[in-house]
Design a protein around this nucleic acid. Structure first.
Length: 417
DNA sequence: AGCTGCGCACCTA
DNA sequence: TAGGTGCGCAGCT
């Protein structure tokens, strides 16, 4: 309701700014929305964040400053390359359809996501400092406590509050500090929503869509990393290895995955575009992984169908491998086992899974909503974010790290079989 | 003062 | 060459 209203306002505002050749940045958007509709900048900012998460709006770093794009329009731009990407994209289509169909309400704002990002996923981390982590956090705060008094807050304050991004992105700004040499570096942080976000039929705002120096951020998820632009690179670099080892070690994928990654590095050169969806989620995940949490997620219930068959890392690795062209048999086997079971998960299994994944509170919500394996496969982003009445933070993590991964893996496997 | 329109330069495909 | 983007400036309210 009010959300769609905001969505409309914000998109109109972005369009309006664009039409008058003004940069659709946070400040202008907030100002215009306020002037036209009387909405508080904070609120506008929060809503904008949501739209970014949905990819209805793309957040990009263009010529050194943050701009927002109406994803529905951006995506019209580049199709050619998308066609190329379709190879992989097509495979995901099933999942993607499921996860996006209602999300974007036809806006098809699937911008920043593209397999390119997947390709880059690993390496891109280097370039991603740009991001807006603080942003997210700020936005989250706004969301959590929207009533938060913002007396006398100016648009700029809001901008700062919501998009500390700017400060953060400064380092990679135009002045040439963009991480990484040349455009190739532009691609970075990709991964975040990497796979599965875009219906194959929507070549949308593939990275290419945002040309120039656009960097799309998915500002929703990934916080920490982005906050420290300076250290991000290092951090990311440091993490990379962690990711792999942590991810692969448990299973036989190890070698395959590693090779894939090497390949990725190369590929990334291609897609090097500018799109930089917040891939922090990935890093975030990484962190968890290294913490040893989700990864070795041994399924909780003893009687459940999942039992010891699944472990997040293996799924992820398998997926990565798959999405990147990996063909390790082991991967397939693993996945097969996993998704067959997924169809058989009971409500209790699902709850146990999330509980074991570190979301005990949210697991209750799944149980309450009677989400079993089949339902889980049908869940869309919006279902997870809003349908379970769970907090946005964990909801995002659950969706991006678990639901989406499970769905993707399941459908991919389905196609492969 | 703030909003709007737009010429123009820049950039990518 | 076409099309997207946005700076910078002038005019308007």
């Amino acid at each position: 309701m009010s959300e769609s209203k905001y969505r409309e306002w914000i998109l109109d505002t972005i369009d309006s700014l664009r039409s008058r050749k003004a940069r659709p940045d946070l400040e202008r958007i907030c100002r215009m929305v306020r002037r036209r509709h009387g909405s508080e900048p904070d609120r506008t900012c929060a809503e904008l964040e949501k739209l970014i998460q949905e990819q209805t709006v793309l957040k990009v770093n263009y010529k050194g400053s943050i701009s927002y794009r109406n994803a529905a329009k951006v995506q019209r731009r580049s199709r050619k390359k998308d066609d190329v990407t379709l190879t992989t994209a097509a495979r995901r289509s099933a999942v993607e359809e499921a996860s996006h169909s209602d999300l974007s309400n036809g806006d098809s704002a699937f911008g920043p996501v593209d397999q390119d990002e997947e390709d880059l996923e690993a390496d891109t981390s280097l370039a991603m400092d740009t991001d807006s982590n603080a942003d997210e956090e700020g936005a989250d705060e706004s969301r959590d406590g929207q009533d938060r008094p913002s007396p006398g807050r100016t648009y700029k304050d809001a901008a700062v509050h919501c998009a500390s991004v700017r400060a953060v992105s400064a380092p990679c700004s135009p002045s040439g500090t963009r991480p990484g040499p040349g455009p190739a570096s532009g691609l970075d942080c990709a991964s975040f929503q990497k796979a599965g976000e875009r219906p194959s039929s929507l070549p949308p705002s593939s990275p290419r869509a945002l040309t120039h120096n656009d960097w799309a951020y998915h500002s929703a998820v990934c916080p920490a990393e982005r906050q420290h632009p300076g250290m991000q690179r290092d951090k990311a670099a440091a993490m990379k290895p962690v990711i792999h080892s942590a991810t692969t070690s448990p299973c036989a994928l190890k070698n395959n995955v590693k090779k894939e990654d090497e390949g990725k590095a190369v590929d990334s050169g291609l897609s090097s575009d500018q799109l930089v969806p917040d891939y922090a989620a990935g890093l975030d995940e990484t962190r968890n992984v290294s913490d040893g949490r989700p990864q070795a997620l041994s399924l909780p219930s003893d009687n459940c169908t999942l039992k010891n068959k699944i472990d997040i890392p293996s799924i992820t690795a398998a997926e990565d491998s798959l999405l990147n062209g990996g063909k390790g048999d082991e991967v397939f086997v693993k996945k097969e086992t996993m998704s067959q079971n997924l169809m058989q998960w009971t409500v209790a299994d699902v709850a146990s899974y999330f509980s074991a994944a570190g979301f005990p509170d949210q697991a209750v919500a799944f149980r309450t909503q009677e989400i079993d394996g089949k339902s889980l496969l049908l869940m869309q982003r919006s279902d997870v974010l809003t349908g379970l009445s769970i907090r946005l933070g964990p909801a995002l993590k659950i969706y991006e790290r678990h639901v989406k991964v499970l769905q993707r893996t399941h459908f991919l496997e389905y196609e492969d079989l």
